[in-house]
């Protein structure tokens, strides 16, 4: 446990009003157990109190410490510095969301897309008796797994270029509602994702599922939404349902 070493932290910096972002590099002494989040807090405490970052729980449940560590989306609180190869660690804010300052991004757009799909479900899940997943159905744990960290949005190549793309987290939330509606209007949710910037925009890069720290598997959720939509529009299904499964908006 005393095995200490010094690691260079190259930290992305940006302050509003500045023309361009820059990197500051700090030396931090770490033990095998030091996490990236702890190292950043150390930098803030000792080297530069103006360093902005978000965190809360320190144990992968609040989802606020998402960032890019050596180019890879991770939760800083559960990423040990020792598990990262090399003597230099580059820390950058999440991509595809507006930067407020340093490592803090504006999550407003994220929630604007996510909340209408998911919030009712999250809010009521603990209180509704019918929210209990039946025995043997593990998929019911999905949305509650999403910690809204935004890693999936940061890694997604489509979110990178299309600002209107609904994004993996919101689409996963939508699929969760379709799976277990709990009184929500499923056709309406399906109508919302059945758009050029909804589930059809995804290019199946599956990066979202690879980085999700909470096993939400948004990629699979998006594919399931597409499958559902296509099955609904099969001509023989349409007749059965007496018309289009969901009317175009």
């Amino acid at each position: 446990m005393t095995e200490q070493r010094t690691v260079q932290f190259r930290v992305f910096r940006y302050k509003q009003g500045r023309e361009r972002p820059w990197y500051d590099t700090f030396d931090v002494t770490v033990t095998p157990r030091t996490t990236v989040l702890e190292a950043l807090q150390f930098i803030r405490r000792v080297h530069d109190p103006s360093l902005m970052l978000r965190h809360s729980c320190h144990h992968a449940s609040c989802g606020t410490c998402g960032m890019r560590i050596n180019g890879q989306e991770r939760l800083a609180c559960i990423t040990r510095v020792h598990d990262i190869a090399g003597e230099r660690v580059t820390v950058e804010p999440l991509a595809n969301l507006p930067i407020i300052g340093d490592l803090v991004v504006d999550m407003k757009a994220f929630y604007a897309k996510f909340t209408p799909m998911a919030m009712p479900l999250i809010r009521h899940s603990e209180f509704l008796p019918e929210a209990e997943p039946p025995e043997g159905v593990d998929t019911y744990t999905r949305l509650e797994n999403c910690i809204e960290c935004g890693l999936c949005v940061s890694v997604c190549p489509v979110a990178a270029s299309d600002p209107l793309y609904l994004g993996p987290a919101a689409l996963a939330a939508a699929w969760r509602v379709v799976q277990e509606p709990r009184g929500q209007n499923v056709p309406e949710i399906l109508a919302q994702v059945d758009t050029a910037h909804g589930c059809w925009r995804c290019h199946i890069a599956m990066e979202c599922s690879a980085v999700c720290p909470s096993h939400v598997d948004p990629g699979a959720a998006i594919m399931a939404l597409r499958g559902t939509l296509i099955r609904q529009h099969l001509p023989w299904r349409r007749k059965q349902q007496g018309g289009d499964a969901h009317e175009p908006r």
Binding site: A191, T195, W200
Partner: peptide, 10 residues
């Protein structure tokens, strides 16, 4: 224009 369905991927 953004709100229409789009199944051109299919």
């Amino acid at each position: 224009a953004y709100r229409g369905g789009d199944r051109w991927w299919l």
